[in-house]
């Protein structure tokens, strides 16, 4: 039943069986951005498939890919269904990707720990994402990827951490290659949106009639 939204959002066939009750049916939409070749696709696939091996013959991202992943929120009965939009970082493709973004609920901003430039470009990505959010708060994470290439590291943890904090993002370091820490950013995002939901639900419960 949980795949209902993805498969048949606008084609209600046999409606009686579409009247689902999953404890927490949530399609949240996560946009994954960053420069080309920082590892967005590798990470998205990792997040998606719970850690299958990094694809060997890796081709550069050619467009936008939509993935889906279900995350269980620890200590609750709730699970969060995330759509992960992997957008290409190549300049020529950025515009078509931005059309797909719509209004993201969550942000995953990725840079390559071995590329100072990819980190420097993060503020530009932030601006772009915010332009799409119409003032809604978007919980987000900053991810420094390629942690395994420690000898080539160009961005220090403390620097990235500080910038992340200034942007209201949680900071994580991952290696999609070694499958290290890859679930942490996603879990953190799912948690953040889940608590936002509960906060709003409380507000609505306490509203006075119009």
């Amino acid at each position: 039943m949980r795949s209902f939204e993805l498969q048949s959002k606008h084609t209600f066939g046999n409606y009686s069986c579409l009247f689902f009750y999953h404890p927490f049916f949530v399609p949240w939409y996560l946009v994954c951005v960053g420069d080309a070749a920082v590892g967005k696709s590798a990470l998205s696939h990792m997040l998606h498939s719970d850690g299958t091996l990094l694809q060997k013959n890796y081709s550069m991202t050619t467009g936008v890919e939509l993935l889906m992943k279900c995350v269980n929120i620890p200590e609750t009965n709730d699970s969060v269904e995330l759509y992960i939009i992997d957008s290409a970082g190549k300049e020529t493709l950025v515009e078509s990707c931005e059309k797909m973004w719509g209004e993201p609920s969550l942000l995953c901003l990725v840079f390559d720990l071995t590329s100072e430039q990819s980190f420097a470009n993060c503020s530009r990505w932030m601006e772009r994402v915010h332009a799409h959010c119409r003032g809604l708060p978007v919980p987000g994470v900053l991810v420094g990827n390629k942690l395994d290439l420690s000898t080539r590291r160009e961005v220090q943890t403390s620097v990235a951490q500080e910038w992340a904090q200034s942007q209201g993002l949680e900071y994580y370091e991952t290696s999609a290659k070694d499958m290290e820490n890859c679930d942490a950013p996603l879990l953190s995002l799912a948690r953040a949106f889940h608590s936002l939901y509960q906060e709003r639900r409380e507000t609505i419960q306490n509203l006075s009639p119009g």
């Binding site: 009750y21 049916f25 639900r201």
Partner: peptide, 23 residues
């Protein structure tokens, strides 16, 4: 669907019960 706030709440005639979207 948040089972604590089901869509029946839309047609029960009360404004203190509600259906809430989840994102």
């Amino acid at each position: 669907g948040d089972e604590e706030h089901p869509p029946e709440n839309i047609t029960d005639g009360k404004t203190n019960t509600f259906w809430m979207s989840t994102g």
